[in-house]
Every structure is written in C-alpha cells, then in structure tokens.
Simulated assay, not measured.
Amino acid sequence: MVDNKAIYQVDAFTDEAFKGNPAGVMIVDDSFSDELMQYVAAEMNLSETAFVTPSNKGFNIRYFTPTTEMPLCGHATLASAHVIYQLGIKGEDESINFKAKGGDLTITKNSDLMAMLFPRYSLNKVAMPDNFKNIVGFEPVEVYASDYNWIVALSEDESDIEKANPNFELMKINGLGHLMITSKSKLENVDFVVRCFAPSLGINEDPVTGSAYCALTPLWSNKLGKKDMFSLQVSKRQGQVSVSSLGNQVEIKGKAITVFEAKLKI
C-alpha cells in the first residue's frame, strides 16, 4: 500500500547533511494528480521534487521544479533510489528501474555508492553567444549546444568557473537560461569542475546537477582521453560525482543522505 502522504528531503551527491543537492521525494499512487505534484514541488521550493509511482516493470518517475515539469533529473533520481533502498522496497542487491519522460534509467547500489545509467546527450559546437563575458563573467574558449536547451561553455581557467557571477535576468533573454560552465581541474584526483545555472526554470544555480553529466561526461572523456572521471560541482554547497563514459550511456555515481521526513496534512 502506497502512502501518498510521506515526503522525504534527501541531500544527493554527498554523504554529509546540508551539502550536495537537496531533492524532495514522494512515493505515490496514480491518484496523486499532476496539479498536486506541482503544488507540492512549489511548496518544497527545491530545484526538483520527484514523484515515484510503482509499476509492474519497476517505477515511473516524474520531476517537478517549483514552476514546471522536467523530463530528467539526476540528483532527484539518486535521491529517489536512496529512499527506495532505505525503506526496503528494494534490497541493496537489487537494481531499480525507473521510467522517466527523458528515458529509462537503471540504478544499482554498492555499499553507500549508487550508480545510475543515463542516456548520453548530444553536443554540437556553436558560435559564441553575444555579450557572454558581460553576462556571465568570462570569455569561454568553446561553446556547445546540448539536449534540453543546455548551453555548455568551456574555460581554460578553473578560477573562471569559481568566480563567475552571472546576471540571471540577462541570461534568460540572451539564450543562456540553461547554462553549464566547466573547465579542467587543477586539483589532484579531480578531472573537471562545473557549475550549472537554469534561471529559465526558476533555478538560478543548481547545487549539483546529475543530468548535466549526460553532456559533460562524453565531452571531457573525449578531451581527456579517459573513460572514468571524477568531478566537483563547485557551487556553494558543492557535490562530488564519479562518472564513466559507456558509449550511448553514461554512468553517474554518488551518495545520498536523508535529512528529514514529513507528512502532508491535506
């Protein structure tokens, strides 16, 4: 019997509370309406809240920002898998199969590390957007367009990524409302760093963006000549992500921790 009232807040891509990226998770049945999902997501006011519905073939999963539904979300998928394992709905030796609007996802668990198989995103080099430096704070060396309207901008200097201070209103009106900025890392045992901004979705900066690695993994795998890599998302909360390039898929690995559980009173 599904409890439509329980909601969990999970910090994903970290094993430390109040770090990584927080996501809401609810396990619901088919009676939970789209309208109510959007209301709950707006009330939670997190970058994403996931709604998981058990099915004969695994679980259907949907993701809502405070303002809209998203086809795919990495950190909310990781958070949802964490809750399913935590509640014992699936054993730790079992895989979890999610069906999302953005693709079919498989999650496995090894100790406290969860691995997610996601589809690889396309990358097409594009011209430098006008006024990028004035809007974001640095001049990229390469710019790519990717799936779901993402723009990926590369810098040669890691400090450009850390110090960037975008103008979010100008981003939205200049085609940069979904932006990843990234560079090779100077840190030992870190391959690349990234920050992600999505003001067009009501998320100025996302703390850790699992689905971003659908584009970043093949990009950096090609540039670094490596299949397995480690990334830091250098937002204020920070997050640690291990990735592997697997042809048409990417493997995204991370940890998660439940911060609280609550009950709807409506």
Rank of each mutant, 00 (worst) to 15 (best):
K19P: 05
T67M: 08
D228L: 11
K99C: 14
V243I: 11
A127N: 12
Q240D: 15
I257Y: 01
D104I: 06
G24W: 01
M116P: 11
Y121Q: 06
C196W: 00
A145H: 02
I135S: 12
Y148S: 14
C73S: 15
E94L: 13
G88S: 00
D11I: 02
L78P: 11
S245I: 05
I181Q: 04
E142R: 04
G175D: 03
V83A: 08
G20F: 01
N56V: 13
Y8C: 10
K184H: 05
T217H: 07
E158Q: 15
K186V: 15
K227P: 02
K19R: 11
M1I: 10
E205F: 06
P166Y: 10
K227V: 15
A262P: 10
S95H: 09
K265I: 15
K223V: 07
N134M: 10
F168G: 02
C214G: 07
V208D: 10
T14C: 03
S47E: 12
V141H: 07
L232S: 13
D147F: 04
Q233D: 01
I7Q: 09
I151Q: 12
M44C: 14
E142P: 04
L72C: 04
K226S: 12
A215P: 02
P71R: 00
L176C: 07
V234C: 02
H82G: 02
G202Q: 10
V10C: 01
L113H: 08
N149M: 13
E139S: 03
T209G: 01
W150Y: 07
P140R: 13
D206Q: 01
G210Y: 05
S211V: 01
L46P: 13
G202S: 09
S211M: 06
K163N: 15
S55R: 14
F32M: 12
M114N: 10
Q240A: 13
K184F: 05
F18K: 01
K125M: 08
D112A: 09
P207E: 15
F260I: 00
